[in-house]
Design a protein around this nucleic acid. Structure first.
Length: 259
DNA sequence: ATGTCGGTTCACAACCGA
């Protein structure tokens, strides 16, 4: 089974590239983030032509997550257990489905903006709710993983130059402690191979030629339970998808499993 | 190098979020 995750930065803007990528890479299951559309505006008919069922959770112009599958799509859950709101509004940042016997959560963790900002506290509360939800899933006995844009770089090596992040989110101790709590709950950080360079970065800013200079970050993660992690035969960052005209600012991660 | 995108609106230019 081939499972992927990709922050597409607008599924409507990315649709031609998404369809081309699905036809080329042929993942069985895909977790998508930053759909930036309403649930009922998701291009379900277009992905169906390639054999995919779709479950989308989107509200308006921000956020939005989804799961595509061509091996079945069951038990769809929208939102975490006890998920916090931001400024009294629920945001579509988590969706789960069971596909071919594997439970996947597609997540888009809040950015945090800057330490001390209300959005940063929201991010930490959101990660705590993710921990609670993941701990419950881990006890269910089926292989499962949380995949998506975590907006946290697990180690200093996961950003291109840690000296530039002194006052920044994504690298602070509380954010990394939230990832450590997920690992303590039994999840493994499935680190993908970079197809080029030393570090498996998954995100490069559109500005300043960041991709060309490899000024990237590893913030898209696959956190897998023991059964899922033990079945992994390969994992890589598909940096080809970050090239060319009209890319997302994130590259997909592709994980192959022998279940 | 706050240099780019994508989406939205008191829409044909300026904003917000990332």
């Amino acid at each position: 089974m081939r499972i992927a995750t990709w922050n597409v930065n607008s599924v409507s803007a990315r649709l031609p590239r998404l369809l081309e990528w699905l036809a080329s890479v042929r993942p069985d299951v895909v977790c998508l983030q930053e759909l930036k559309c309403d649930s009922d505006a998701f291009p379900a008919a277009e992905v169906a032509e390639l054999g995919y069922e779709a479950a989308a959770y989107g509200v308006g112009r921000w956020n939005g997550v989804g799961v595509l599958s061509r091996v079945g799509l069951e038990d769809v859950t929208r939102g975490l257990i006890d998920e916090p709101d931001f400024e009294s509004r629920a945001e579509p940042r988590a969706i789960a489905a069971t596909c071919g016997g594997v439970r996947v959560w597609s997540v888009y963790v809040p950015n945090g903006r800057e330490p001390g900002h209300p959005h940063y506290d929201y991010k930490l509360r959101w990660l705590a709710a993710l921990h609670g939800t993941a701990a419950k899933e881990a006890a269910s006995g089926r292989p499962f993983a949380v995949l998506g844009d975590f907006n946290v770089a697990p180690t200093d090596a996961d950003v291109w130059d840690i000296s530039l992040f002194a006052e920044s989110t994504h690298v602070t101790e509380p954010e990394r402690a939230a990832l450590a709590a997920l690992r303590d709950a039994g999840l493994t950080d499935v680190i993908p191979r970079p197809l080029k360079h030393d570090h498996p970065f998954t995100y490069w800013d559109y500005r300043a030629g960041a991709f060309h200079k490899n000024m990237g970050m590893r913030i898209d993660l696959v956190y897998a339970d023991q059964q899922f992690a033990a079945a992994v035969t390969d994992a890589y960052v598909d940096r080809e998808a970050r090239k060319g005209k009209g890319p997302s600012d994130h590259a997909p991660i592709v994980v192959d499993l022998d279940l």
